[in-house]
Simulated scan of single mutants.
Amino acid sequence: MEATISSGPDPILWLATDTCALGPYRADLVETYWRWEQDPALLVGYGRQSPESLEARTEGMNHQLRGENIRFTIYDRTSGKPVPAGVATLLPDHAVRTAEYIVMIDPQARGRGLGTQATRLTLDYAFHITNLRMVWLKVLAPNTPAIRAYERAGFRDAGLLRNAGYWLGQVCDERIMDTLAEEFTGHSLVQP
């Protein structure tokens, strides 16, 4: 499904490469985010068993916009004009300078490396702007495409939660993956 964007000025982009960018989380995109979240593959990947109404999602958006979590709209820039293509979220624990990472990619934008690029940009922001020392995530063990994307972005295995999730109606393990600030290598768009 094509993302719906209001006509007007180009979106604000905080960190960008030629093909991917991160910008602010946007209330005007609540229906677009909601449509992505209802995709059956995403419901399976998150281990959720039921969809959510647009009304409930809109209420949730209002709460999210006031919260302390760091949320980005991911933009696909391959066509030249930035098109919303996902959401990246950091759930920080400021007391210990760590955060859980969650990403959601538009079903039509998957499989082209956008998730890996967005994850690298989010880590760049996390380590060089938010000054986190570690970022971690949970992923269902059967979700091998996501695991490969996280590994390419710099995450590595940190543990296993046995029988903690569901995949296609079956109990499965959840893998814990993490990455440290000192392990963030390669080009940074924040640091010169």
Rank of each mutant, 00 (worst) to 15 (best):
L65V: 10
E151N: 15
P142W: 04
N69D: 04
G60F: 03
L43Y: 10
V190S: 14
L180P: 01
E31G: 08
E174Y: 00
N131K: 00
Q191P: 10
I74T: 06
T89L: 08
P92Y: 03
Q64P: 08
T116R: 09
R66T: 14
T119W: 02
E37C: 11
L121T: 03
L189F: 14
A95N: 09
W136R: 05
R26L: 15
P51Q: 12
W167C: 04
V87S: 04
T130F: 15
L54D: 07
V171F: 10
W136K: 09
R120D: 10
P107R: 06
Y125F: 04
P192I: 02
I105C: 07
R71I: 00
Q117E: 15
T185G: 11
A27P: 13
A99N: 10
T185P: 05
S6L: 04
R120H: 09
V135F: 00
L189R: 11
R66V: 14
G8Q: 05
A164E: 06
L42A: 04
D18F: 10
T89M: 12
A16S: 15
L121D: 01
I129L: 14
P51M: 06
L29K: 00
N131S: 01
P84W: 00
E174I: 00
T89W: 11
Y33T: 05
I102R: 10
L42E: 01
S53W: 11
D173I: 07
T58K: 07
T73A: 12
L22I: 14
S188F: 09
W34F: 13
T19G: 13
Q38A: 06
L43I: 10
A149H: 01
G67V: 05
Q170K: 15
Y25I: 11
R120G: 12
I12K: 13
G115V: 06
P40D: 14
C172L: 08
I12V: 14
I105S: 02
T78H: 02
D124G: 13
